[in-house]
């Protein structure tokens, strides 16, 4: 039996009912649109979580690669971005898998040559580092991905009460850290 879950790249998956050239164009355009519309915001979220812009870019790029691999299916989901986001976060939070992303080489180059605007200068960046990972995920998904408690619970596969608890504790801790930072800044 031949299972076709994974069409070859040069033969993009035809959509049912659509002729192939049309489907190919539309699918390709849809993917590009999704990429351009969400790459930056997803990267910001992942940076806030893992603390490293270059690594976050790699993770999001990898997530889009995986989406593209099965784009004929992903594009049919109600919310393809949710799929990409979940994959990127899975990659970021995985304990068992070490992901070698396609961009690791580029990252090294970039680190050497392009300093760029540094998130380290923002107090929030440092304050986020002090949160336990679950609380950090919750506040980042809440404030940067604009997800509801329900959506966060769905992505994290935990009860809503757990998410509320993470958010509550995470916000309190962040507020404390930030007020301390501000005091130091004010007096310094």
């Amino acid at each position: 039996m031949a299972v076709t879950t994974d069409p070859r790249l040069d033969e993009p998956p035809p959509r049912r009912g659509a002729s192939r050239p049309v489907a190919r164009d539309r699918l390709g355009v849809e993917f590009d649109q999704l990429y351009h519309a969400h790459f930056r915001s997803l990267t910001v979220q992942l940076t806030a979580y893992c603390g490293d812009l270059a690594q976050a870019q790699d993770l999001v790029q990898e997530a889009f690669c995986r989406a593209f691999t099965r784009w004929s299916a992903v594009s049919r989901y109600d919310d393809p971005v949710a799929w990409v986001r979940r994959v990127a976060w899975n990659l970021a939070t995985s304990r068992w898998r070490r992901v070698r992303t396609a961009q690791s080489f580029l990252r090294r180059q970039r680190e050497e040559h392009v300093p760029g605007p540094s998130p380290d200068r923002v107090a929030l960046h440092a304050a986020l580092r002090l949160l336990p990972p679950n609380q950090r995920r919750a506040v980042v998904l809440h404030y940067l991905a604009d997800l509801s408690v329900n959506q966060i619970a769905e992505q994290e596969q935990v009860p809503e009460g757990t998410v509320k608890s993470w958010l509550h504790r995470g916000r309190a801790a962040l507020a404390t850290h930030l007020s301390v930072t501000n005091e130091v800044t004010d007096h310094g």
């Binding site: 590009d32 990429y35 915001s41 806030a48 889009f64 960046h125």
Partner: peptide, 25 residues
Amino acid sequence: LLGGEFAAYRDVLLAAVEPAGPTAV
């Protein structure tokens, strides 16, 4: 307070992100 901090953080980072692009995908 946090909403403001996150908004500022987002602005700084958005400018710094360099998408490799869908072609690279």
